[in-house]
Design a protein around this nucleic acid. Structure first.
Length: 435
DNA sequence: CACGTATTTCCTGTTT
DNA sequence: TAAACAGGAAATACGT
């Protein structure tokens, strides 16, 4: 699993091995597809994945990529388990060069792990471990100086660590390297998500998208480039991440299942692209959030946390950046188009079962009862749509609960992750959809 | 600018 | 025990 081009670990401790011996928290081969006996899964999800994997094979390259990823992540599917990462790597602009921008090792091109494909936020503990291990080896750091317990965290926890926490955890030397690399990975992943999103929307949905824009400047003869350029975020991504990091003070340990983490991140970055062609925000740009950051100064002996310059923002993040606002204004005058609200977003995922890749499913199609299968992935997708990287299912579900009172949703008691559309919702019934 | 709406964030407590 | 669920309270963006 940690082949990395056959490179030997030059006397350094293999962290992943050591830690897994200590903790027994890891299942094996989350992403290599070699050993898949350890996984057990919800049968609902499993069945759905079978279905979706089949249907997904038909169309785009991204679907193909997703299947390959699923094969690695859900290796219990016998027909798919042989597929491997090359397709994924091809699909993402995320490359070794970028990843390796902090070091000069020649072996690097062969030694990066699958974790590099994935938003660090979704890393499993195993991924975190591999990532730390990689840097320990690259920097010839003496791993015996590391407290292995400190590596026992998943990506969401890792991402929530501030710079000084990283230093404290991994020591000044390694901590600095890791911090810098993590920031790069996070930033790069945001770009990847955006690019994936744009390309999918553009290629898959360009015609309907443009047809939907009677007032758009594109009527003069839009080009793919013009769409993409207008859609690329211009905001300060760093602020988005610090926003996320600083808010995530309560560290909720994420799933420890590597396959799930991979899957969810892929679904966040890939599946989301298919959804809501008419949503303005999905084509919008980052806003110039002015979230204040906590600043740190470093001195050899101490880390001094400086007080934030301003108070931290709370509540709803800005919908769109200025550039995109412009764009959307042209797109549709004034009124919020279909897909703007959370319940519409959820509905739109549900009414495109062939494209939702197992994020959600109908429990009772006629009654409008549905279930979140990958709640955190849906939340991430919603966050992606709203340009809010800190969205979680917990927060999304709070918004869902507000719908009960408005009768957009009805309660479904005793069933976790299950909701039902209420009388004030629309657009989901078979009749309404002409089916 | 005030106000209403629709979240988003945070929190405490409860249930599964 | 962790993950969901429930809702109150407050913050925030955005439209009117």
């Amino acid at each position: 699993m940690r082949e990395r081009g056959g490179k030997k670990s030059s006397g350094n401790l293999h962290l992943s091995h050591t830690l897994s011996l200590n903790t027994h928290t890891h299942t094996h081969s989350h992403y290599c597809g070699a050993d898949y006996t350890a996984h057990t899964r919800d049968s609902d999800t499993s069945n759905l994945d079978h279905t979706l994997s089949r249907s997904a094979m038909a169309s785009s390259e991204l679907s193909h990529i997703l299947n390959n990823a699923n094969a690695n992540l859900y290796p219990s599917e016998p027909s798919l388990h042989a597929a491997s990462f090359p397709a994924m790597q091809r699909s993402t602009p995320f490359n070794d060069t970028h990843y390796c921008n902090n070091n000069n090792n020649n072996n690097i091109h062969n030694t990066v792990g699958p974790w590099q494909q994935v938003n660090p936020q979704f890393w499993s503990r195993r991924n975190v471990l591999d990532w730390v291990d990689f840097h320990v080896e690259e920097s010839k750091y003496d791993a015996t100086l590391l407290n292995l317990d400190c590596c026992n965290m998943d990506g969401s926890v890792l991402c929530s660590l501030s710079r000084d926490a990283m230093m404290a955890t991994f020591g000044p030397q390694l901590g600095e390297t890791l911090h810098r690399n993590l920031e790069n990975l996070k930033h790069k992943h945001v770009e990847d998500i955006t690019q994936n999103c744009m390309l999918n929307e553009t290629y898959e949905l360009l015609s309907s998208f443009l047809l939907d824009l009677p007032q758009s400047p594109f009527n003069d003869g839009p080009t793919l480039d013009s769409v993409i350029v207008q859609s690329v975020p211009t905001g300060n991504k760093e602020s988005d991440f610090s926003y996320y990091n600083e808010y995530k003070t309560q560290l909720t340990p994420g799933s420890d299942n590597g396959y799930e983490s991979y899957s969810e991140s892929l679904q966040s970055s890939i599946t989301g692209s298919f959804l809501n062609p008419s949503s303005p925000e999905s084509a919008g740009s980052d806003s110039d959030h002015e979230y204040t950051e906590t600043h740190y100064t470093y001195s050899p002996k101490s880390f001094i946390k400086q007080e934030p310059v301003e108070k931290k923002r709370r509540g709803r993040p800005p919908k769109l950046g200025r550039g995109a606002e412009h764009f959307v204004e042209n797109k549709k005058n004034k009124h919020a188009p279909r897909g703007t609200h959370l319940w519409e977003f959820i509905r739109d995922i549900l009414i495109h079962p062939e494209k939702n890749q197992g994020l959600m499913k109908w429990e009772d199609r006629r009654d409008g009862v549905f279930k979140f299968l990958k709640s955190e992935a849906v939340a991430q997708l919603w966050g992606q749509k709203k340009k809010n990287t800190s969205m979680t299912y917990e927060k999304l579900s709070r918004a869902m609960r507000y719908y009960y009172k408005r009768e957009i949703l009805e309660r479904v008691d005793g069933r976790r992750l299950v909701y039902k559309f209420g009388k004030n919702s629309s657009g989901w019934k078979l009749e309404e959809l002409g089916m």
